[in-house]
Design a protein around this nucleic acid. Structure first.
Length: 538
RNA sequence: GCGCCGCUAGCUCAACUGGUUAGAGCAAGUGACUCUUAAUCACUAGGUUCGGGGUUCGAGUCCCCGGCGGCGUACCA
């Protein structure tokens, strides 16, 4: 891409009043500096190469093996061995050690490093000079044979090489690498080149999502895709992003959850479905929250929340198996044991056990308020005993739960999509899986009574009308679906990013999302200003 | 949102209580070098100290405003 030429000129006149935006002149000057500096360094080499008939960006290269395969096949060779096996490999030059008529270089491909041994005696003076003229960061293809050096380093003895892509920008420092978090997130491509931990987290994320998918398929679940653009807000409580469809002439939400469309598919008879997909919440950004994140939701007809507990344990255990052979991980300085079974305890019992107080959604609201007064927990006048019970749990208990624990039977008042508990109508059949003080999964025996569901939607809509931006809409189409009959169903949602955080021992969600949401970088093109949407900020 | 901390060469970092011309390593350029491993050695070049204003004889350093980031805190996964 030609990043110098497009961005500045096109937004004629906008932003003059703001003062904080770089002017087009400043951006042009910055681009000028870049070009001036780089032309001195490497663009000159490009020109020279082209003049000499060498294409610095050729179209294809045929490789026969990789660094890892060579290491695996020949890792046991004695020092000073040469074998007559021809290989062709490709990768990025990461280190160069030139010493006259002999050069060593470290080539890295996706498996890792392998040393290149380049000798004038083998390839001649001209080719060796061309090799020494390469820059750290260049992509090259190499043909050669397998050897070990006198000190035993497995190497490819280079018989010939081809430049595959010329690097114009210098890589970060070879020893300290790239540490600036802002640059690491904005230029993840450089982070991945330089930092083994970035590659490790990326690898575990890829592997985790793949394992979850295959585990569920193995259990008879079908992967489906619901709509991202939706006209009603529901399935969770969160502020949505709003966008606009020009041809249809209406505003749309970006989904905040996967739930309601998956359950429509249960109504349609798909029986066991799941989706791993991106959801969007227009809320704060911090160590554990990104505006877009990846959710897993699973629905199983004829099951209940007990089945979901078993399934949740199975998913986590299966995902952890490769990454954590002993099922243990140190997170936040504490060793967590992810081996099932996990403790199962009701919210009311945990409060009693940990805090020594008796509070539950069935008790008179005055009595519940006294409990909160005694504990020093703040509450609002319109909360019932259910919400008060939940407040005690949220404020004083959840963050203390370290080892994996299913917290069961949340008050009905805080669980609009869960089915009332079979033994106690003030509770629901719901659980949250809490690990290291954070909620990793949330599940219900799903509510399938359309009349009850409509009532709960209307309660939420009333809250929204009173200014609660996180409250959902009345989704009458969903109610209509339930009226056609949804079988008894267990459903579960799990944050995939948080699962990866857990498996990698990473405290920040931005480390496990390859491209976390950041403020736009000035001068890089695209949207940089706040343009009020058709409905403004909800 | 709020609070605290940070931003110095392409990268990683120095620069005392405000005091000459802002230093070093790596990367880059030139040269030497046939077994290196962050190769080594010599020389060269590289800076709007995040931006703007202020205090001062003098500001990378102090003050104010703004930008970007990190962490903490409140709510959501």
């Amino acid at each position: 891409m030609d990043d110098a030429s497009d961005a500045p000129a096109t937004d004629g006149g906008a932003g003059a009043a703001g003062g904080s935006e770089p002017t087009p002149e400043e951006e042009a000057a910055a681009a000028e500096d870049f070009i001036a500096e780089q032309r001195h360094l490497r663009l000159g080499k490009l020109d020279a190469m082209r003049a000499a008939g060498v294409d610095p960006y050729p179209v294809r290269f045929e490789r026969t093996t990789t660094a890892g395969a060579i290491q695996a096949a020949h890792g046991d060779l004695q020092p000073g061995t040469e074998i007559d096996e021809k290989v062709s490999i490709a990768g990025r030059l990461m280190l160069m050690r030139r010493q006259g008529k002999l050069s060593f270089a470290t080539l890295v491909d996706r498996d890792g490093p392998i040393q290149l041994f380049v000798s004038t005696a083998v390839i001649g003076e001209v080719a060796h000079h061309d090799f020494d003229d390469l820059d750290r960061g260049d992509w090259i293809g190499v043909e050669g044979t397998i050897m070990t050096t006198r000190r035993g380093e497995l190497s490819v003895k280079v018989a010939g090489f081809t430049l595959l892509s010329k690097t114009i920008r210098p890589l970060p420092e070879k020893w300290h690498g790239l540490t600036d978090t802002d640059t690491r997130y904005r230029q993840r491509y450089v982070d991945l080149v330089m930092n083994e931990n970035a590659r490790r987290i990326a690898r575990i994320r890829i592997q985790t999502i793949s394992r979850v998918r295959h585990y569920l398929e193995g259990q008879g679940f079908s992967e489906v895709e619901g709509p991202v653009l939706q006209s009603t807000q529901g399935g969770a409580t969160a502020r949505p992003f709003v966008t606009h469809h020009n041809a249809l002439g209406n505003d749309l939400y970006l989904r905040i959850a996967l739930e309601l469309h998956l359950k429509r598919l249960i109504v349609g008879g798909l029986d066991r479905v799941f989706e791993i997909g991106r959801v969007f919440r227009n809320e704060g950004v911090d160590t554990t929250h990104n505006p877009e994140f990846t959710m897993l939701e699973v629905y199983q007809a004829f099951g209940d929340y007990n089945d979901m507990m078993d399934l949740t344990e199975g998913i986590i255990a299966d995902a952890a198996r490769d990454v954590l052979p002993d099922m243990k991980v140190t997170y936040g300085g504490v060793e967590l044991n992810l081996a099932p079974p996990y403790r199962r305890a009701t919210m009311v019992a945990l409060i009693e056990e940990e805090l020594g107080v008796d509070i539950n959604p069935a008790m008179p609201v005055e009595a519940a308020r006294k409990v909160l007064d005694g504990l020093g927990v703040a509450y609002r006048a319109d909360w019932g005993s259910g919400r008060l019970t939940n407040a005690v749990y949220d404020e004083l208990l959840q963050h203390k739960i370290v080892q994996p624990t299913f917290v069961l039977d949340h008050p009905r008042e805080v669980s609009p999509l869960a089915r009332p508990h079979r033994d106690d109508p003030t509770l629901t059949e719901r659980f949250e899986l809490v690990i290291s003080g954070h909620e990793l999964a949330n599940a219900y025996s799903e509510l399938n009574d359309p009349v009850d569901q409509l009532q709960r939607f209307e309660d939420e809509a009333a809250a929204k009308a009173h200014g609660d931006a996180e409250a959902g809409d009345v989704d009458l189409d969903y109610v209509r679906a339930l009226e056609y009959g949804m079988p008894p169903t267990g459903g579960m949602g799990m944050g995939m990013d948080r699962l990866v955080m857990l498996l990698t021992g990473t405290p920040s969600i931005r480390e496990v999302i390859l491209f976390p949401t950041l403020r736009p970088e000035p001068g890089m093109g695209g949207l940089t200003e706040s343009t009020p949407g058709p409905r403004g900020d909800l």
